[in-house]
Every structure is written in C-alpha cells, then in structure tokens.
Design a protein around this nucleic acid. Structure first.
Lengths: 149, 149
DNA sequence: ATCATTGCAAACACTTTGCATACGC
DNA sequence: GCGTATGCAAAGTGTTTGCAATGAT
C-alpha cells in the first residue's frame, strides 16, 4: 500500500526541541504524519487521519501546530492549491506537481539553477516554490478520456 | 504615478470574441483593468477600483468574469498568495515575486529551461508557476529594520 | 421572445480568534 | 501552582450558488 517507514519518536522530539518547540503528543503526531506519509496533506486530511487514534483532537490544534511548525521552519506551507494550504516536510529543494483530476500533490525533481539565489531583481528572496499543474500519470492511465480529445 | 498605457476597446473586444466570450461592459472593464494595471490584482482590488466608475457593479460579476476568463485561457489565476487568488494577464512565461511585507506581486524574469516541457515524471503538464517570496526592494529601502537583525 | 449576463442574498469552505479547561513541569 | 497547550464555539474572510431582474439581439 502506502510506504510508511517508521520514524522514531526520539527523532521527532529532537527535531522539535532543536527549534524550541515543546514536543507535545499532538505536535508529535502531526509532524510524524507529515514526515511519514509524504502526502502533502491539508489540515482536513491530517485531521481525519489522526482523529481515528486521537478522538479528542481538534482542528484548531492542527491549525495551531502547523502555523507554529511553519513559523519555526520545520515544515513548509504550499500554496499550490487555490482553496486550501498543503504542508510539506522537505529538507532538500524540490518542485511540486498537482493533479487537476484527483487533487494529489507529487514531488518532482527540477534542475534548479536559480533556486540558490538570495536576491532577484533587487528583491530579497526567502523562499521559492515551483508548481506544476496538469494530469498525473495515474489519472492519465485510468481515464483515457483525456487522450481522446 | 502608475503607468497606464491606454488600450483600445476594439483590441479588448477582439480578444474576448476570439475566445467566444461576449464582450459585455463589465467583462471589458475587468479585462482592461488587469491588462492596464499590471499589479496582479485580487478580486477585491478590482472591485474597489471599478466600483468608483460602475457603482452597480457586483463582486459576483467579477468572480464570474474571472472564472470565465481563466477557463478560456485569457487570464491566469495565481495561487501565490495563501488567502486570495491573484490574476494575471501574461502571454510570455514569467515568474512572480510576492513581498511578505506589502503583499505586492512583481513580475520577475527567469531563464526557464524546464518551462517548455509537456511531461514531467510521466505527469502531463498544463501549467507552470514559479513563486518567489521575500521582501521587495521597496520595503527593504523604506524599512531598514530588515537589515538590522 | 429568448437567452445570457448581472447582482443581491444566502450558503459554503477554510482559517483565525476568544476564552475556558486541562495538562505538564 | 503556574504557564502553556488544547479544544470548543463563534467570528472572519474569500468564494460559490440560487434565483430573480435586467439587458441584448
């Protein structure tokens, strides 16, 4: 099914503490989910998944957690979808592809010659996001309607 | 102030009609605004600007118009801002820079070797957006707080 | 007369805020 | 016990939808 390499809680704790974030159970759970499933999930996706194991979990906590982790630079907020924010844990720089049919977001590699620059046209660059949109290989194969016209 | 090169209504009409869009007064106004001011406006920005001349104008009409123009490929919807959609009229491919301080969006040029590809990792590519985020040159100069720490 | 566009009001969806409760050291 | 994290409810904001009125041919 989905490949979920196990991630030690100690690693997650260290990761959070190294950025001065207290490793609460909820925060560990959210971070673990993002790292394990490399799904680029939305708040709702995380909420539905974690609610099964943590029935008392609130969406507010997920919002709080993700805003905190983004602010601390532990995760990245992707503005690839027009209606909802997706979240990503990626150290190395890579681009993203979102399928217009199924909505999934995939990592794609880009030979980025410009990704390392600190300034562009006099503007100070803190972050670069490269977004591809189209139809993913899964949806192309499943539904060959797209090939017919 | 803002450089607004005048654009003939005939040009706008032809542009719309060539994509099977009836050139109503409201649609012409919205399209003209986007092409003239190149400031990648939000719905609200367009609404506030055009309301002065068209007091009966409704936000719904702007949403309708922009969705239609996007669908017809006349304008591009930018997902660079996390909360609101920005719109752009750009024929040639270019990247965008959004300032975290003032919120403005600028065009930036990128030597894009990968912008022409139709497929990436097996996914069919319809659209590419390159988003830079940081602090624009204006805000850097005005407020040297950013340089101090 | 017919059909599409407009625009008000309401509904929707995502996110943030206020505040009381619960938790951890 | 004190300070912070949690989570419910409500508010806020951007966008879409239902539908009646208006406008164009």
């Amino acid at each position: 099914m989905t490949k979920t390499k196990n991630i030690s809680t100690d690693y997650l704790k260290e990761l959070l503490e190294s950025k001065d974030v207290k490793p609460s159970f909820q925060r560990l759970s959210v971070l673990k989910y993002i790292i394990q499933k490399k799904n680029h999930p939305s708040v709702d996706t995380i909420f539905k998944a974690l609610s099964k194991d943590i029935p008392t979990l609130s969406k507010t906590t997920i919002y709080n957690t993700l805003n905190l982790l983004t602010q601390k630079g532990i995760v990245t907020a992707l503005t690839i979808a027009d209606n909802e924010t997706r979240y990503d844990f990626g150290e190395e720089h890579h681009a993203h592809f979102q399928c217009a049919v199924c909505g999934m977001v995939f990592d794609v590699k880009v030979d980025s010659d410009f990704c390392d620059r600190d300034f562009i046209d006099g503007h100070k660059v803190d972050e670069i996001q490269v977004h591809f949109k189209g139809v993913c290989s899964n949806c192309l194969n499943k539904n060959n309607t797209f090939l017919k016209h």
